[in-house]
């Protein structure tokens, strides 16, 4: 990072801490108006450093690794497709996968947060799905927390020398599931139950979101594996350039 970039990152991180943490405990996507304003601002603030670093990384990718743009476009498109598919689930309701796992595995969590917020903005403004006031909270769950988990799991699996496709499956599906756990926690924190308080409330929301999401997370994991197999077959030079494949295998 250049000096300027470092400074911007630091400033936003401080802002995030100031707004996000002092709020201190107090949906697919969470629908418009369903979080109180304080929480909306808090979650939004936490996302900002991720987005800022993401935009800087994206700029660098565009200028230095032009070749990999095709992968970036595909990752964004993949998130677009998957988050439009509302799939029926075992408990009689529907939800959609996030599609951010692929980007997180290939490009890391920061770039993914930028792709994720684009999808969320599209859905919030045009489809009345999610919301502009809850954009921060939804961005945190789908474009920051989920991808962080995906990225972390993939890195961990790589260290353990697990089969690469199995790692992709685990990373994508657990990241997807985690997104909705975070959503439940966000709703639970804001709407504590009268009996049992925050925890009871989180469990209720988990019952709605996480249970619905389990089969969908598996679907997302499998689909991501299929896409990655396709990429491994046809996009070796690009995958090598972003460091997904080692030089030797290219």
């Amino acid at each position: 990072m250049t000096k300027l970039e470092k400074r911007i990152t630091a400033v936003t991180a401080v802002l995030a801490l100031a707004f996000g943490v002092t709020q201190n405990v107090g949906a697919m996507h969470i629908a418009e108006g369903f979080l109180t304003p304080g929480w909306c601002i808090g979650w939004g603030a936490i996302c900002i450093p991720f987005l800022v670093v993401g935009v800087m990384q994206m700029k660098r990718t565009v200028s230095k690794h032009r070749k990999t743009l095709i992968l970036l476009a595909m990752c964004g498109a993949y998130a677009f497709v998957l988050s439009a598919l509302k799939i029926p689930s075992i408990n009689g309701s529907s939800s959609h996968p996030t599609g951010t796992g692929l980007a997180a595995i290939l490009f890391g969590p920061f770039l993914t947060s930028v792709l994720g917020i684009i999808v969320l903005l599209f859905q919030a403004t045009l489809l009345a799905h999610g919301g502009l006031t809850t954009l921060g909270a939804n961005t945190f769950s789908m474009a920051v927390a989920g991808p962080l988990v995906s990225w972390g799991i993939f890195a961990l699996c790589k260290k353990c020398r697990l089969n690469r496709l199995v790692s992709v499956f685990l990373a994508a599906s657990l990241g997807d599931l985690f997104t909705y756990c975070v959503t439940s926690i966000q709703l639970g924190l804001d709407h504590p139950s009268e009996v049992g308080g925050i925890m009871a409330s989180i469990v209720r929301f988990m019952g709605v979101f996480a249970v619905t999401q389990i089969p969908l997370a598996i679907v997302e994991g499998l689909l991501t594996v299929v896409v990655v197999m396709g990429l491994e077959a046809y996009a070796k030079p690009e995958l090598t350039e972003i460091g997904y494949l080692k030089e030797a295998t290219a």
């Binding site: 697919m28 969470i30 629908a31 939800s95 502009l132 709703l187 709407h191 709605v208 619905t212």
Partner: peptide, 26 residues
């Protein structure tokens, strides 16, 4: 097979009956 987000809105209504959504999609 309604959306899980709709189901969550119902849970909010149940847990906090006097909560009014304070914004609507433009």
């Amino acid at each position: 097979f309604g959306g899980a987000d709709g189901a969550a809105e119902e849970v909010v209504a149940e847990i906090a009956p006097d909560y009014e959504p304070w914004a609507e999609s433009p």
